[in-house]
Design a protein around this nucleic acid. Structure first.
Lengths: 181, 181
DNA sequence: GTCTATACACAGATAGAC
DNA sequence: GTCTATCTGTGTATAGAC
């Protein structure tokens, strides 16, 4: 399965650089030096391929954030995203397609959201326990809001690359700190 | 141009009820009782048609919110959106497609975001002036965050209709009120 | 203004040879 | 495992009749 991994890594680079327009099976196959049929040999369908790409990206991101979890790592993740517009586009576009309940990747996103939300909530609770955030905030709700905000910022940023996503994430943390009783 | 208006109104109803899958020129033409060519006669291209639909939706929403602007109207708008999943889907999906810089509707969204953001910022300032919100908050940033959060909530809500979007918008207002120095 | 018919483009899937 | 070739589906756009 080394080839599969190699394909995903290359695909990730290509999409990051060239955007969603290059995200057809054919284009990705070209970039990887395979024919369309050759690429599909490894994944079967487009949806499986794309889901694998996004999954791979998540793994990379988790690795990146593992050094220091917490407020800063989230800001850094957002900063990093601003450097790979193609991936943000792919994520946004594929998610909007998968919103249809019978889309093959619907469950993948559903689960991804669920897990990220839970992880974030746990992180907020950790910060409350350590006194970094007021303890009378609803951690679950904050996590949902933060996560949604980040996704929304990405959408808006695609239309206005001047928008400083990380700055707004930081400011949200600040507002939260100030919201203590 | 009465016919154009009639088409948009009907299209809006259909999409709201049946979702993005029904949002092809052909399906909309059917719903409106025209042939595909007949419908395109009025709009020329798919992008023009869809942009017109979304524009129409915005007008309707603005009318709805005109009664009482402010915090509550925003919450109500979100509550209303939860009742028209198809429109949320159309908005999300078409926006993600238009993110490509050379998409025919790219500018429409860019401008839409710019205007909504400015309107929201003005509203936040108004609330600060009247003492409803702490005056030491950055109105512009709050507007961007709020707007992004609402968009992100919609994305997540499409995968988890249990998610109470309005509740989280309300909670954000509350956090903001508590964030005064 | 509206229809029927058709052209065109694209992208994904699949068959079968090597 | 990988390629070439081809099929199929889908969706938009257009030509031309009524």
């Amino acid at each position: 399965m080394a080839k599969r991994e190699e394909i995903l890594t290359t695909a990730l680079e290509i999409v990051a650089r060239d955007g969603y327009s290059k995200a057809t099976v054919r284009e990705l196959a070209d970039a990887v030096g395979l024919s369309q049929a050759g690429l599909l040999h490894y994944f079967g369908t487009k949806e499986v391929l794309f889901t694998a790409i996004l999954q791979r990206r998540d793994e990379v991101d988790v690795d990146r954030a593992l050094g220091d979890p917490g407020e800063d790592s989230l800001v850094e993740l957002v900063e990093h995203n601003a450097e790979v517009p193609g991936l943000v586009q792919l994520y946004s576009r594929f998610a909007s397609e998968a919103a249809e309940k019978d889309h093959p990747s619907h469950e993948f996103f559903r689960e991804r959201y669920r897990l990220s939300r839970a992880g974030l909530a746990a992180e907020v609770e950790r910060m409350q326990a350590s006194g970094e955030l007021p303890s009378d905030l609803d951690a679950e709700r904050i996590a949902i809001m933060m996560f949604a905000m980040i996704d929304g910022l990405q959408t808006h940023w695609m239309f206005d690359p001047e928008l400083d996503m990380a700055q707004h994430v930081s400011y949200f943390w600040e507002v939260l700190r100030r919201a203590g009783k």
